[in-house]
Amino acid sequence: MDRLENIEIFVRVAQTQSFAEAARQLRLARSVVTSRVKQLEEHVGAPLFHRSTRVVRLSEVGQAFLSDCTDLVGRANDIMDQMRGARAGPAGILRIHALTGFVLGHFAALLHEFQVNYPDIRLELIVSDAVVDPVKVGVDCALQIFPAASTELVSRPLFPVRRVFCATPAYLRKAGVPKSPRDLHKHALGLYSGYPTRDRWTFHHGPEHVTLYMNAALLTNSVHLLREYALEHAGIVCLPTLVAGDAILRGDLQVVLPDHLLSSFSLSAVYAGTSRNDFKLRLFIEHIAGAFSKVPQWDADMIAKGILPPDVITD
């Protein structure tokens, strides 16, 4: 077992390219991580890493064995989880990184249901809009709307995330309702800063599309701040419907340019193909996926009321 633990530590150091970060993720002292890697190197009879004060990189021997070691660690953890599951149910820690916009208002009930079904799995949740590599930050899965940061990661789409421009009825009565996308230039705009298209916005109207570059009166990485900004009658904002849906259905916010569609993103579960918590992670992802159809409930409610068209645009 010690040798397998040494291999797992070797894999984590290689993935994070840091002894200190591997120690943090594994909750071990750095001296223990260093000692375990040294033991493995003595057993192999060759250095696994080239070390300097700033860089940790694999040696030729380390590169040759990393893939097999990663598979071994993943398979060993999967077998142990399944053995525990067969006896008394899966147990242990599952670390998740999730988007703020998804977590607030939609996630707590799902987490509670999952814990009722699997009471011995402890969840550790990091909430942030940052795009992360799950391996490097030490989580089992990232729930995000952007592509995986590496080709070594698996990305499983869960549901589409639509975006709309919206404002309060009071603001629109005062400032006027845009009739075309170019009319947005006449308004105070609140925009999310993290989209990969940055200041470039493409609107789809039937077979036609128009691309505009727009400047924001408020540019932020918080979609919830944008919603509050709009509710203060401050301007027109672009929000994902998973954040704006409730306010739109109540009439607090009104969709503008409903026939000019923006492209949608997919909320995806991004994880390493050889996750060390593969069994628990599969249970978690299946639980989340099972809670949503291809049309999330907040979109379905707006489509049923004619607020949104049923069409979804994907890039």
Rank of each mutant, 00 (worst) to 15 (best):
A216L: 03
G306P: 05
K174M: 11
V255P: 00
R36V: 07
A88M: 14
L189Y: 14
G176R: 11
V73M: 11
P258K: 09
G176S: 10
G85T: 13
A188M: 05
F10V: 00
G45P: 03
G190K: 01
L253Q: 06
Q115G: 10
K305Q: 09
L72Q: 05
R57I: 11
V37L: 08
K38Q: 07
E113S: 14
Y213D: 08
M80T: 07
G89T: 12
E42V: 07
H260A: 09
L267R: 00
V131P: 00
P181V: 09
V103F: 12
V135G: 00
R95H: 12
A20W: 12
Q25I: 15
V255R: 04
A86I: 02
E286Y: 05
Q115N: 14
H209W: 02
Y192A: 02
Q17I: 06
L66W: 14
L99K: 12
P310K: 09
T197N: 12
V243L: 08
R95C: 13
I93T: 14
L239C: 04
P296C: 08
V33N: 05
K179R: 15
V210K: 08
F146P: 06
P47F: 11
I307A: 06
V131D: 12
G190D: 01
L104T: 07
V154K: 11
R54D: 09
E60C: 00
R12S: 09
E286H: 13
I96N: 01
K186Y: 02
L26E: 06
R156G: 00
I288R: 03
A170N: 10
A175R: 11
V37E: 05
P47R: 11
H43Y: 09
E42G: 05
A108H: 10
K38F: 07
A291M: 12
I7P: 01
L267S: 07
P134I: 04
V127L: 13
A188C: 14
V127M: 11
H260C: 08
V13L: 09
E228F: 01
D2A: 13
L242I: 15
L172M: 03
D246V: 13
I96Y: 12
P196V: 13
E286D: 15
L283H: 06
L110K: 02
L58V: 14
Q82N: 12
T100Y: 11
D301H: 13
D183T: 08
P309V: 05
Q144D: 09
E41W: 07
